[in-house]
Simulated assay, not measured.
Amino acid sequence: MSSQSKNAEQFDLWQIDSGYAYSISNDVELYLSTRLTSGNETQAASRGMLSGVKYNLTPKMSLRSAVTAEKRINQDATVGLEVSSQFSVTEQVNFHATVDYEDLEQIYQLGIGFRF
């Protein structure tokens, strides 16, 4: 679950990803996930799916790539590409960076994550 801020507004968009990962080897996983994103006054809510590959470069660092398909309310579906990396500082805290390209917009995201 993550929160996003658009155009220096408050954190008012919530994204929930849930899915399944299948290990091919110790370092490579295939995954399939569903995604729900809340809406606000400037962006419609959406639902979608993503499928991709996760590669563990080291025990603390990983790289993920995915193809996404998202459908916003009263709009056509959009297809996108997403590439992200993650570095685990501790078991619960990690740094992550994401580049997400969709038909309608480009999103670059840097952040700190918390796992529970």
Rank of each mutant, 00 (worst) to 15 (best):
F11D: 08
S38D: 06
S62H: 12
N7V: 08
S62G: 01
T78Q: 14
L63N: 03
T37I: 03
R47Q: 14
G113K: 05
K6M: 04
S23Y: 13
Y20T: 09
D27P: 03
S85D: 12
N7S: 08
S84M: 04
Y55M: 02
A66F: 12
E29L: 02
H96C: 02
S85W: 15
Y108I: 08
A44T: 03
E102V: 08
A66R: 12
I16E: 00
A8D: 14
E91M: 07
V83N: 06
Q106S: 12
T78F: 10
S33V: 01
N26G: 13
V53T: 02
W14P: 00
L110E: 09
T37H: 14
K6Y: 10
N7P: 00
R35P: 00
Y108V: 07
I107D: 10
L36K: 10
H96Y: 15
E102A: 09
I24K: 06
T78A: 07
A77F: 08
F11V: 11
A69K: 10
L36F: 13
S85I: 08
Y101T: 08
S51P: 00
D100S: 08
T34E: 09
K71N: 13
R72M: 09
V83F: 12
V79Y: 14
T58P: 14
A77W: 11
S85K: 05
I112F: 08
